[in-house]
Amino acid sequence: MKIAIASGKGGTGKTTISTNLAYLLKENNYRVLLADCDVEEPNDDIFFNIEWKENIEPFILIPEVDPNKCTGCGECTKACQYHAIVNIGKKTIVFPELCHGCGLCTYACPEDAIREVKRPIGKISNGYTAENIRFFKGLLNIGETVTTSLITNLLKYIDENEKNYDFYLYDSPPGTSCPVIETTKNADYILLVTEPTPFGLNDLKMAVEMIRKLGKDFGVFVNKSTIGNDDLWNYCKAENIEILGQLPNSREIATSYSNGGLILKDFPAYRKEFLKIYSKIKV
């Protein structure tokens, strides 16, 4: 089963829920894979002791122009939708950071003057936590804009190479746009994490709209449940959205988090809140 952990608003506790849920499932003897898909700011690894096994360098293909073959006809420039390849007089120059790697310029060139070279966009690392949770992390290079490409690469690698797990947990980036869609579109179930504040509710509504558009089964986990007002609870009730668990706003939990602590280890009393998710999703 594939579970994506997402939220409209950032900082609501996706990482907390993902890491603790992975820990709980492992404790119950399931084979668990946790993939940190928040590739712009991945943090799941902070909460585990990980023995890293492998690094993969995902890339996109960008054009390289052979000046001896290029006649300066400008067909590549006309074809490119991103202004990433520009012909001026006899010269053709490439702007790698504007290139989306679609390959059209190579196809459009009548002189066969363009070949494609690899441009690394980040890193995919994998290993095992001390609890033997299979762990993956994607990390986007600073200055790169191809967040979605990196997530596609990460999930494709997992699909092709990691077939023997009971649970696949995907910790998604925040928001409701393309990187989030990429992370959630192949999940069987989506766990939305939010908080009962006006910001939390506003962003949850957008996330719910997104998931309904994708036609996915989902539920909500309410973090910092003791702050804010009743609007979130009323909304979930009115919309018939299942609340799978909640954690109170607590300085102790926040402090433990700040040091990279897992709630299930530091505060066993909250185990029952995670067990509710567990009973909902177990095979």
Binding site: E40, N43, I46, S258, N259
Partner: peptide, 20 residues
Amino acid sequence: TEPTLSGLHDFERVLKLTKQ
């Protein structure tokens, strides 16, 4: 940012970006 390991880590990355 906030004084958490995640906050430190994310600050490092965002600072790299503003520097770039």
